[in-house]
Write a protein that binds this DNA or RNA. Structure first.
Lengths: 144, 144
DNA sequence: TATTGTTATACTCTATAACTATA
DNA sequence: TATAGTTATAGAGTATAACAATA
């Protein structure tokens, strides 16, 4: 006789859905820009993650993927003229990855797109965004 | 002579990163539960999206994928005993998809995991979660 | 002629394992 | 012996196109 009602709290459902919706919009916004520049989603994440010169192993760790996958990824970025493999004089097994000038320019473009031009956030006032940031900080990192 | 500083506002960067971090944690939390029940990520999204009986075409739309992809997806769910294809007496081209009892149970389990057991949100007070919800609502749907 | 769903095929993303060249 | 990177291969996930049945 018991009805099968009483699912999750509707307010909580809305909270979760809003977080997922915002995250999805941010991701799509970034990936559209990436595609317009000829980058696949994993290539875009790679370029965004490259700051200082680093061994390919580090990029695999950043992307949370196997090192074997990085080879082809970097092949593509290299043929686009965005990345270069440089020898490491201290350890000849290592290839130091560096962004070219074009790569740095594109990385900065993608950063602007991901952050400065993030969707929806611009609809908040500075104070509201600060509030949002503090709530998220408290939720995710309660010890801080 | 100009330094290449002045990237995006660090506060904005933190806001965006926190949103992505929370969304990622929610997604991982859901997908771990799904995998524990033998579901791949797309299968989990399918089960979560099934409420009323609906043609396969609707599921393709919900998943934002081609209809040809839904065939194999539903084959898997059917062989797991979670979903059944039922004829539509009004239009014999259509297969109405319905969750079995086991499918409904699993869907409810996944809903609890995604919503009630969402990570991080539980660290907020009810009032804080309400604040968060309102900020996200205002950012994403400013007209409401 | 248009639509639902299936099949056949291919492409992208990613992993595992075997290999090389160093260390 | 262990590590950095590559190659070969295989498995998901997904798309396009051609098709069958029905409208």
């Amino acid at each position: 006789m018991s009805e099968d009602v009483d699912g999750p709290d509707p307010a909580r459902v809305e909270t979760v859905e809003l977080v997922l919706e915002l995250s999805h919009a941010m991701t799509v916004n970034l990936l559209v820009a990436a595609r317009d520049h000829g980058l696949s989603p994993p290539q875009a994440r790679a370029v965004l993650g490259m700051t200082a010169p680093a061994p390919m192993r580090d990029l695999a760790e950043h992307l949370a993927c196997d090192k074997s996958h990085v080879t082809g990824l970097v092949d593509g970025l290299e043929s686009l003229g965005l990345v270069a493999r440089q020898p490491d004089p201290r350890d000849r097994r290592i290839r130091q990855l560096v962004l070219t000038d074009a790569g740095r320019t594109l990385r900065d473009t993608l950063r602007v797109r991901l952050y400065a031009q993030a969707p929806a956030i611009g609809n908040l006032t500075g104070a509201e965004e600060e509030q949002l940031r503090q709530l998220l900080r408290r939720a995710l990192h309660p010890t801080c």
